[in-house]
């Protein structure tokens, strides 16, 4: 126990200040999203690079819960659906089921180049090509993969905040 405490103290506080934000009056997001988002993530056939960054976002540097955001294990508990990958045909039905299972109000974020426009997998017989072809998408976060900071800024925007650069 002593050694665990020693390591905890040695690591110290690595959490960083989140980007500065203010309430966005033009935001279409419901006010109940403010500082409180349940996020359900679905990998619709990504290369797993986006999942690495989502897991990194969950780490101690980014203080996700301090912003009031947390990943949920069930779509029933989620306000936001994040989707990565070019939406393989084999995942399209499961993705739609997941979206249907979410309570309203709900939002969809396409994460990464593949989810935005198919990325390097665009044109394959096995993919639909982008999340917007299957679900109504409210926000796209490009990048291959988008880094945790870009993901956090996207989540803040969908929660109704205006993010200062």
């Amino acid at each position: 126990m002593y050694r665990i405490l020693r390591e905890v103290l040695r690591l110290g506080k690595v959490g960083e200040k989140p980007p500065r934000t203010q309430r966005d009056p033009a935001s279409a997001s419901p006010s109940c999203f403010r500082h409180s988002l349940g996020i359900r993530h679905v990998d619709a056939g990504s290369c797993n690079g986006c999942e690495l960054e989502l897991n990194a976002l969950n780490g101690p540097h980014y203080n996700l819960e301090q912003a009031g955001f947390r990943f949920t294990a069930s779509p029933r508990h989620a306000d936001v659906l994040t989707v990565s990958g070019p939406v393989t045909r084999h995942m399209a039905a499961a993705l739609q089921d997941c979206h249907t299972a979410m309570p309203a109000p709900r939002r969809v974020i396409a994460i990464g180049d593949c989810a935005c426009d198919g990325g390097v997998f665009q044109g394959s017989y096995a993919v639909v090509g982008k999340v917007a072809a299957v679900l109504p998408v409210d926000l796209q976060i490009s990048g291959c993969p988008p880094d945790p900071d870009a993901l956090l800024r996207g989540l803040l925007r969908i929660s109704g905040e205006q993010v200062n650069s």
């Binding site: 056939g45 393989t88 084999h90 995942m91 044109g123 394959s124 096995a126």
Partner: peptide, 11 residues
């Protein structure tokens, strides 16, 4: 498996 099949070989 097969849910993540993207047709890589043909691409």
């Amino acid at each position: 498996f097969g849910y993540a099949h993207k047709g890589v070989e043909r691409l």
